[in-house]
Design a protein around this nucleic acid. Structure first.
Lengths: 144, 144
DNA sequence: GCTTTATATTTGTATGTACAAACAATAATG
DNA sequence: CATTATTGTTTGTACATACAAATATAAAGC
C-alpha cells in the first residue's frame, strides 16, 4: 500500500532519482576532483568570464548562500578567483581552472552515456527535458 | 550554451526538481509537524507495526544510517518507539503517532493536488511513475 | 545631498543525506 | 562448539543545501 503512495508521489520519486544520479555523477566527476555542481559552475565561468554570483545562482538554480559556499571551496582549490566590483562579486577562472575544461566535458559525456546505457539514450534525454520543463512550471516560469 | 548542457543533464534536472518539490512538500507536511520522509515513515509503520529499520530503509530508499537518524528524531517527538529484538530494531507507532494518520493523508493529497494544478494531474502522475521506474532501472532492479 | 529603499553577497545555523568504521547479534563452517 | 563470516544497527564525520539575519553597496525620492 505505502509503495503505491510512494510511486505516486513526485516529491519522493524526484528525490530518489536525484540521489541515485548524484552518486553516479559524483563518481564520474571525481576524476576531475570536482563535485558535479562545481563542474557546472566552472563551465558557466568558461562561458562568461566575470559572471556574477547572482547569475550563477540563477543558472544552477541554487540559492545565493549556496553559491557563496561553492565558490569559497573552488577558490580554495585555486580553480577560480573573484574580483568584487561594487556590490557584485565577479568570478573568473584561473589557469588551473581552465586546464580542466576538456576533462570536464569528457566526464559530462560519460555520465550521460552511463545512464543512457541503462535507460536508453532517447528515453533518458526525453525525461531529462521533461523534468526541466516540469521544474519551470512548478517555479512559475512560463513555458521554456 | 551551458543552459543547453544543463537541460540535457539528468543529474542536474532530477536534483533541481527534487529541490523544488522538497520545498513544496515540507510546506504541506509542516501542518503535521513532520518532514515529508518522516510522514512516509510513519505511514509505513501504520501499515506494518513492528516493521524493521532495514525494511523501512528499503521502502524509502534511504541508507541505514539515515533511517537511524530519522527514527531517533521521531522517537524524540514521541511519535514512534522501538523495541530491539536480537539485532533487529522493530518500530511501532505510539498513540500520538497514530493520531496523525488522517492529517498525513490530507497533506499527502493536497501536495499531489498542488503540483497537479501546475503540471496537470495526468501529466504529474505520469512523470512520477516514469521517475520511479527510471530509478529502478538505474539501480539495476528489474522491471517493476 | 540626505534618507530611504532595493539589491548582492556573506554569515550563522539547521537539515537531510551519506560513507566508513564500529558494534552487536546471529548463522555457517570446520 | 569455537571460530569465522554475515547481517542489522549505530556512531563519527562530512557534504550539499537552505533560510533568515546581517552587511555592504547602489539607486531613488524628496
Amino acid at each position: 500500500m505505502l509503495d503505491t503512495y510512494l510511486k505516486e508521489c513526485l516529491y519522493f520519486t524526484a528525490n530518489r532519482l536525484g540521489r541515485v544520479l548524484t552518486k553516479m555523477a559524483e563518481d564520474e566527476f571525481a576524476s576531475c576532483g570536482l563535485s558535479p555542481n562545481g563542474a557546472f559552475l566552472l563551465m558557466a565561468v568558461y562561458e562568461q568570464e566575470g559572471i556574477t554570483q547572482k547569475r550563477l545562482g540563477e543558472m544552477l538554480h541554487l540559492q545565493p548562500s549556496t553559491v557563496t559556499r561553492l565558490i569559497e571551496k573552488m577558490i580554495g582549490r585555486g580553480l577560480i578567483y573573484n574580483q568584487t566590483e561594487g556590490r557584485l562579486s565577479r568570478i573568473y577562472s584561473t589557469d588551473k581552472g581552465r586546464s580542466l575544461e576538456a576533462q570536464i566535458e569528457r566526464c559530462w559525456d560519460s555520465l550521460r552515456e552511463r545512464y543512457g546505457a541503462l535507460l536508453g539514450v532517447e528515453y533518458g534525454d526525453r525525461i531529462t527535458l521533461e523534468l526541466y520543463e516540469a521544474s519551470d512550471k512548478l517555479e512559475g516560469k512560463r513555458e521554456s
